[in-house]
Design a binder for these strands. Structure first.
Lengths: 314, 314
DNA sequence: CGACGTCCTGCTCATGTGAGCAAAGTCTGT
DNA sequence: ACAGACTTTGCTCACATGAGCAGGACGTCG
């Protein structure tokens, strides 16, 4: 496209998109035929001079969703738009809302849903509408009665999802990570815990998020890990955790000893699930999001467009 | 629009604008008729969910241009888009380019063009293409041989415009503001100066910018005024200057004594001109831009979309 | 200088789209 | 429950648009 056509295509685009003139009228105004106008508009679009954005908290990016399905082998993907988002929190809200929508729209609706816990899951529970399902029971898939801050949020998440879905919640009465392997074995052998874990393995679908490997982690916050533990894990290649288990960029357990002290579903349990929905939002979680998708931990990814873009670029 | 339709309109907009499906196809995918799809798209546009931007350094905002013409009585207006602009300097470049384009497209092409000087004018001269006119002479309309910094830029501007337009430049060999009224009267009585001023009054068209009333002013920079003078002018209501003359929001001379010491065309000379093009860009010049338009100092305004918006809102 | 290939232009025609309208559906107040 | 007012729906039809094609302009190379 030469310089004159470039300018003409801009004028044509202005008249077409901002002034709502027909191509015929634009032609008259710019002294060219209406066919030329049509071609100029096509050129303007192809050259990227025309940007069309959907500005809405529920706007999605179907292009990225399709690419994620096709190029990364996901069963489904939900990518929320970042247009107009002012804060990381707003982004999390959007992703949580989208995950809630996706869950409510799942067909067949799961009879038993396994869930993890955390900030993201709590928001998803919050955004689910009452009656999203008529009969969905919920089971926790990893340990985590909060030790220090905000006790009961993990429980509230599972219970909230179950209540709104017309079912009941089975809680996993165990810490997330134990100090000694023997204690972990003992607690998993406990009748109640064992029954919940077995139930968890039989769920029709799973819904979980992931945590970044940084000092803001909920595990540090809850006292299960010290900041120095995180540093050590990062040094060993950890990019984040899924259901309490820290993995590297290719999805492998970073610290087998730590993993053996972690209560809950194994990553292979998740990998063999028919429906595993991961909801992961935000700048800090890009590496773990990539690890989750690459290592097949989820069949469905709900995320924001920047994260999706990075996943496809990388 | 109820909540369901709002969501549907977003989905429809995504499929229409991002996936390039036809309304028929969207209807099939969303289980609604194609007419409903058309209505949803209209609603999405009306509700402002769809934003279409033209991303190009020469993109303009015809809507704002029309409103400026109709609501503010301008003969013509050029409003450059702010989309994608990263710095105030880039904005100035865009406005200067637009002013150059407008000048080159003026019909009939002025035989004699009166110009002011300054950063904006210098950029306009820079952006004019060689041969923008076949026979346009240029005359300076206000004094301003630079006293301290960058000597000769005022002259270079006028000469540059004239050279590229196949004509010659008449420079006004006088300071912008004199210390004593008597000196100003004497210099204006000088044969050469008087002839140039007379020539300036006979120009077919004028092109000028305006300065904000702040310490960054070119008059402070050049030593014609002290920072304290600016403070005094601002206290007296000054919002900026046009051809060296400081005016308030309604276009009135703020300090008659200072004005009487300023060499160049009077504001009333400008007001009675057939073609007076003002090129004013940037955040700091909003107040003076408004004063220029409101008090009829220009027939054509070239500016950026934010300034234009404020002009129309205020 | 002319034959050839490439790009561009203006056109036909099939398809996509919005205005306008009548019928169906929904909401209100009695 | 029903009449009336208002909204929504599905439609016809006219207009807007993009695909595809033939002819012409232009540039290139033998």
């Amino acid at each position: 496209m030469d310089a004159v056509d470039e300018l003409l295509s801009i004028r044509a685009a202005e008249l077409y998109y901002e002034e709502n003139l027909t191509q015929e009228e634009i032609g008259k105004s710019l002294q060219i035929t209406r066919w030329k106008v049509g071609r100029l508009l096509t050129q303007a679009k192809d050259a990227g001079f025309v940007r069309i954005e959907i500005l809405h908290s529920r706007a999605r990016r179907p292009q990225l969703e399709r690419r994620l399905r096709e190029e990364r082998g996901l069963t489904d993907a939900v990518v929320v738009s970042r247009a107009g988002v002012r804060s990381e929190d707003e982004l999390l809200q959007r992703v949580a809302q989208a995950a809630a929508d996706h869950l409510a729209a799942l067909r067949p609706s799961p009879r038993l849903l396994g869930v993890s816990w955390g900030r993201t899951l709590s928001e998803i529970a919050h955004h689910l509408r009452d009656g999203w399902s008529t009969q969905t029971d919920v089971v926790q898939i990893n340990g985590g009665m909060s030790v220090s801050s905000r006790p009961g949020t993990a429980a509230a998440t599972a219970v909230g999802i179950a209540q709104k879905g017309g079912g009941s919640a089975a809680l996993l009465p165990s810490p997330a990570i134990l100090e000694h392997r023997a204690t972990k074995d003992a607690i998993e052998a406990d009748r109640v815990v064992a029954r919940v874990l077995e139930l968890a393995r039989s769920a029709d679908a799973y819904l979980f998020s992931a945590g970044a490997a940084d000092h803001g982690s909920v595990h540090v916050d809850s006292g299960y890990l010290a900041a120095s533990d995180i540093d050590r894990l990062v040094a060993a290649g950890a990019v984040g955790d899924v259901v309490g288990r820290y993995i590297d960029a290719s999805g492998r357990i970073v610290d087998p000893d730590l993993d053996a002290r972690t209560v809950g579903l194994s990553l292979d349990d998740l990998r063999s699930a028919d429906v595993a929905i991961a909801a992961i939002a935000g700048e800090s979680k890009r590496a773990i999001a990539s690890a989750v998708v690459t290592s097949g931990l989820c069949t469905v990814l709900v995320t924001d467009e920047t994260t999706a873009q990075q996943l496809l670029d990388g």
